[in-house]
């Protein structure tokens, strides 16, 4: 579904990603871990189409198409979804209006009719229940005055409403207490199926107790320093990132 080859990305002349290779197939869950500054959030942003980054080398293909040539809205309509690490507050625009505009844009792309008010409400209410979100948040402005946990749940709500093919979750676990984390993980696990791929970007192994990945990659200084199965996350938890980073240094010297 997603094939990233030798991806180099710079911002303000500084190289952040220095040759990323990643192959994500439908049905798989990948975890991308790494210390602060390793480039994992940059990777998530670049895949979603954030402007301001310069791709200096390499390719990213999504469903056989050149992902990097698509606008952010094209990517979203074709099924790429990024759950933001810091969801944006949009005063004056209700959550309902935002979700409806977004869902209709995605449906239109797939030749589906726009949902009428009744069907939309029924769908959203069902998904809100699933992620444990209070219904009053639907009429409130997008993320405005939401607690940290409510903002993250709102991202997962959008995920469950838009039903993307490739979901990238950027630090969705940060700022969540254990109950919220479980609920968010349940929401994500319910989305797992053979046609959908999920990429979890996270600093901590904690989230992976609840969403068990098929593959774990450890990012260090803009490169994937180590890849493995779910067990790699536990090793990291025991040894810390220094363990991988030391190895990365050694391999470069060699």
């Amino acid at each position: 579904m997603l094939t990233v080859k030798n991806l180099h990305v710079a911002i303000d002349g500084k190289e952040i990603l220095r040759g990323i290779d990643l192959n994500v197939r439908a049905g798989e869950v990948h975890a991308i871990m790494g210390p602060n500054g390793s480039g994992k959030s940059t990777l998530a942003q670049v895949l979603a189409g954030r402007e301001g980054y310069r791709v200096t080398a390499g390719t990213a293909r999504y469903l056989g198409r050149n992902l990097l040539a698509m606008t952010p809205e094209q990517r979203a309509r074709e099924g790429v979804f990024l759950a933001f690490q810091y969801p944006v507050e949009i005063p004056g625009v209700s959550n309902a209006l935002f979700l409806k505009t977004s869902l209709n844009a995605v449906r239109k792309q797939h030749g589906l009719p726009e949902l009428d008010a009744m069907d939309f409400l029924a769908l959203v209410r069902d998904r809100m229940k699933r992620v444990g979100m209070d219904e009053v948040l639907l009429s409130r402005a997008v993320n405005e005055g939401f607690s940290g946990g409510e903002k993250k749940r709102n991202e997962i709500l959008q995920l469950t409403v838009l039903e993307p093919k490739l979901a990238i979750l950027d630090e969705t676990d940060s700022g969540l207490d254990i109950d919220a984390l479980k609920q968010v993980a349940d929401g994500v696990n319910a989305m797992r199926n053979a046609r959908r791929a999920i990429v979890l970007v996270t600093h901590y192994q904690r989230l992976l107790n609840y969403i068990v990945p098929d593959h774990v990659h450890v990012l260090s200084q803009g490169r994937i320093a180590k890849s493995g199965g779910a067990g790699l996350a536990f090793e990291l938890e025991q040894h810390g990132y220094g363990w991988v980073e030391a190895g990365n240094e050694a391999s470069r010297v060699a």
């Binding site: 189409g49 979203a76 933001f84 935002f98 505009t101 977004s102 792309q109």
Partner: peptide, 11 residues
Amino acid sequence: HLFYLRSRGID
């Protein structure tokens, strides 16, 4: 703000 909306499919 613009990127957030566009990343949800809104042109």
